[in-house]
């Protein structure tokens, strides 16, 4: 088993965090995993992306030219990376922030995912858009189980941040559900 994904957007959107959660969950699955960040010059407002590689075998390169999956949360990140995604790969695009007309990879059957609206209206916390995206990615890729990601979320946060855990789990599940329904709808 081998899967690599680029998670991308603006700094401050929680891109690195969802990469971290994914990588941690993969570790709990007993898999090999690498998490490699690439920061923009500015910590906030600039581009932020990271690459997560998950494999049942020892991992060579922690970076990828041709990812199996892409999570895009901004127009520039979609434009930068969509051309690189493998044929029959997966693209999860936050259409609350990304102009759908910019999606050029029709071959990937991307499900429009208005993550900010989902986070605000269905989860009740607009800051959870990144977690909604991660949930959707899990549904699309099947690379690690929802169970392990929920376990990760539970072990990841300490102190005051723990109060957000139920919301995060909700966000994960909502994202998962939307992606699954979207894929079924597309056939």
């Amino acid at each position: 088993m081998y899967y690599d994904v680029i998670l991308s957007g603006f700094g401050g959107q929680g891109i690195l965090l969802i990469g971290d959660l994914l990588a941690h969950a993969a570790m709990l699955e007993g898999l090999h995993v690498t998490w490699m960040p690439s920061y923009g010059v500015e910590m906030r407002g600039g581009a932020a992306n990271c690459t997560v590689v998950i494999s049942s075998e020892k991992i060579g390169s922690p970076i990828t030219d041709e990812p199996c999956g892409l999570i895009a949360m901004s127009n520039p990140s979609l434009l930068k990376f969509q051309g690189k995604v493998k044929k029959e790969g997966l693209m999860v695009v936050n259409t609350s922030l990304v102009d759908s007309q910019l999606i050029e990879r029709g071959d990937l059957g991307t499900v429009p995912l208005p993550a900010n609206e989902i986070a605000y209206q269905e989860v009740g916390e607009h800051k959870m858009a990144n977690i909604v995206m991660l949930g959707a990615f899990l549904a699309g890729s099947g690379v690690v189980s929802m169970e392990k990601v929920e376990e990760t979320v539970d072990s990841f946060f300490e102190g005051g941040k723990r109060k957000n855990i139920p919301l995060m789990v909700k966000a994960l599940r909502r994202g998962f559900q939307h992606q699954k329904e979207g894929m079924e709808h597309a056939g």
């Binding site: 990588a23 570790m27 090999h32 995993v33 690498t34 998490w35 490699m36 960040p37 922690p62």
Partner: peptide, 9 residues
């Protein structure tokens, strides 16, 4: 920077 920034188990 790859080895410094990368996370692995």
């Amino acid at each position: 920077a790859i080895l410094g920034q990368m996370k692995e188990p």
